[in-house]
Amino acid sequence: MTTRPDILCIGSVLWDVIGRSASTMRQGSDVPGRITRLPGGVALNIAMTLTRFGLRPGLLSAVGRDAEGEDLVRACDRLGCLTCDLYRSDDLPTDVYMAVEGANGLIAAIADAHSLEQAGARILAPLRDGRLGSDAAPWAGPVALDGNLTTALLEEILHMPALAAADLRIAPASPGKADRLLPFLRAGRGALYVNLEEAGLLCQHDFATAPEAAQALLARGAARAVVTAGGAPAADATPEGVLTESPPEVLVTRVTGAGDTFMAAHVAAELRGEDRAAALHRALQAAAAYVSGDIPS
């Protein structure tokens, strides 16, 4: 059995601790709900969705050798993600993301990804030592890249010879980290997957619609921009044109991980050979099923 990944997912692999309530919440709210701990992080969320489409994603990230890290690696293995190339640290604890969601959406979140940031370029060793690639034999497949990496490491990835032939698909992780994608925007490299707020931060402009935002990202230098806008139409913009489609109307029961599900479904559809319109449709359907709760966490 081969352990060669179909796609590399580079970025955060951690535990998601999510508190959800059916009540509308505001600052200071104290309401009943459920608290869950699930495997998460942008890179892992994308990888987990890719496995549902029959792909073998390889994870490049930092996971501690603490009890939480051992539990997390076992969970990733059970889900069908390849963990053999993870950087395992004796000194760095396993990262964690904590969020609170109410009926009115995400209330607050804290991402503790300090171990990933401290590990830095050590997570890329398999792309240099021949396990997955090298400068002489670059990785030529798709890569899902998340913005939880430091700006310096993202710059390094952009210019490293071992990824010069890669099909880069890039997500900012959160609006607060959107500016970390600026090097890819300036270099015209990779497909950017952003929401309306993140597109506005990258362009320093408020956009009313996803098509408007996607076209502006192209004008700023992006090779491709895929922009979502919640329940409003999404857009996929390339120099060949802009495609738009409205997502299905569903009852929203959760939001954390929806963008990652959208991106993974979109990438998986294109890897199967579907055209841009079909891929956008499938991604919107998958994201709608996820936020409605039809796809289990």
Rank of each mutant, 00 (worst) to 15 (best):
A234F: 08
R20Y: 04
A43W: 00
P175R: 08
P239E: 04
P248Y: 01
A137K: 12
A152W: 08
A225Y: 03
E101A: 05
L280T: 09
T83W: 03
G221H: 02
D90N: 09
A225Q: 08
N45D: 12
V255D: 06
V42F: 01
G188H: 02
L168Q: 01
R78D: 14
Q204S: 07
E249W: 08
R180G: 07
L116K: 12
P142L: 06
T209M: 10
R272W: 15
D6N: 03
P138W: 13
R131H: 11
L181R: 02
T2R: 15
G120P: 08
I46L: 14
T2W: 11
R4Y: 06
I107G: 09
E198G: 10
S21Y: 00
E70P: 01
G58S: 08
Q215R: 14
G28S: 10
L196F: 06
A136Y: 15
S134T: 12
Y87W: 13
A136N: 15
L44A: 14
Q285L: 10
A216H: 04
L44C: 09
L271E: 10
T244D: 13
R220L: 00
G33I: 00
M25V: 15
A125N: 13
A210C: 08
C81R: 01
M160Q: 15
A191R: 15
G259L: 03
R37N: 07
D71G: 13
A208V: 11
G231P: 10
A264Q: 13
A47W: 03
L271D: 09
S23N: 13
E240K: 15
N195L: 09
A140W: 02
A140I: 07
I110M: 14
A164R: 14
Q27M: 08
D294I: 05
A162R: 15
E101Y: 03
L202A: 08
M25Y: 09
A232I: 04
L55W: 14
A237S: 00
A136M: 13
T24Y: 10
A278S: 14
N45E: 10
T244E: 15
P32H: 03
D260Q: 05
T209R: 14
M98N: 04
L158F: 02
T36M: 03
R276V: 11
T244H: 11
S23R: 14
R131Q: 12
D275L: 13
A47I: 03
P211S: 11
V100Q: 07
H114C: 10
C9K: 07
A137I: 13
A99T: 01
V194Y: 07
I10Q: 05
V227L: 04
L243Q: 12
L149R: 09
V100C: 07
I170R: 01
R180T: 08
A99S: 04
R74Q: 15
L50P: 02
G230W: 06
S12V: 02
V226N: 00
D179P: 02
V194T: 06
A223I: 06
W139I: 15
L38V: 11
I35R: 06
W139H: 13
E212F: 04
P39E: 12
L192V: 01
G200E: 14
D146Q: 00
I170E: 01
F262V: 01
S174L: 11
A164E: 14
P183D: 05
Q285E: 12
G33M: 00
F53I: 09
D206A: 15
A265T: 09
P126T: 12
G80M: 04
